[in-house]
Design a protein around this nucleic acid. Structure first.
Ligand code: SF4
Ligand code: SF4
Lengths: 142, 142
DNA sequence: TTAATTTAGGATAATTTTGTCCGAAATAAA
DNA sequence: TTTATTTCGGACAAAATTATCCTAAATTAA
């Protein structure tokens, strides 16, 4: 469904969100450890998210990563920043274009599914996921 | 969403289904041409589907591939034969197990989505897709 | 200014997925 | 039996994804 890069990115973002109160920064090492991702690869993914404006980063001692507005960051914006639009725009059967006027055989059935996925990712924000994690209702490592 | 192998496989199966009346066989070359897939790779995928019992194959002249019971073959059985269970059982965030008693932060939101996908793939059968394609309501090439 | 810390980014490596090639095996017809 | 046709299967190649490594740049504090 999502690429590994995207899975790493989402887990990292959720963890960062749990730690980002009052402009606090988290270091890459902590993020990797708490989200169960390889450190160097996580750095790459965070770079992309940072460039997309979903994440603040600061170099040097007392530097690290932080999220200002977890309530405003949707899962969709994260997925889009890492995996692009393929999940939202691409054809289920891999046809070059997804065109309702010349639909592939799965067009109708798949469209509903994809809209559901889209809505879910658009309406889910980092804050609620981070809250669940902080409260112990959900987990990032296993 | 689906792997390339799976996309090729589904397209091939739909085309074969359109041609499989009265035990008629279709040759690999025709399948590849009409489903827009590379021939040799398609052979690999069809091999897997054949081994999974979703497809009859016969060697030699007048041989080829055919589908007996398109009405009984669900999309899910095809996806499962090629991509395995990852889409149905794997964790959205890549955690090793998907366990409702120790859920990942996306568990609830994602579960609904995945159930929807599962139902759609289970309830969609080759026959209806082939019918749409034969009637000109949908297309395989673009 | 110097040293320590931490992200940024490019080069490289490993792995997985995708795709190709070719000979062997099966089948049917001549 | 011989020949032509077609799938089968393994080896191989290419490309994409995932992951690591190392140096540079920025920042802070001593
Ligand atoms: S099924 Fe239709 S809408 Fe869905 S990807 Fe294919 S062409 Fe696009
Ligand atoms: S969100 Fe829950 S159900 Fe979905 S994959 Fe993760 S652990 Fe499994």
């Amino acid at each position: 469904m999502f690429s590994k890069a995207c899975e790493h990115g989402i887990r990292a973002m959720i963890y960062i969100a749990t730690q980002s109160t009052a402009g606090r920064r988290v270091k890459l090492g902590d993020i990797a450890r708490h989200s169960g991702s390889p450190e160097a690869f996580t750095a790459k993914v965070l770079g992309a998210l940072s460039k997309a404006g979903l994440l603040e980063s600061l170099k040097g001692p007392a530097g690290g990563f932080g999220i200002d507005n977890a309530a405003k960051i949707s899962l969709k914006s994260i997925v889009q920043a890492i995996d692009g639009d393929r999940l939202f725009k691409g054809c289920a059967l891999g046809l070059l274009e997804c065109d309702a006027s010349k639909p592939c055989p799965m067009h109708h059935k798949f469209g509903a599914m994809r809209d559901g996925l889209n809505d879910m990712l658009e309406s889910t924000h980092l804050e609620e996921l981070a809250t669940g994690l902080k409260s112990g209702a959900s987990f990032l490592l296993r």
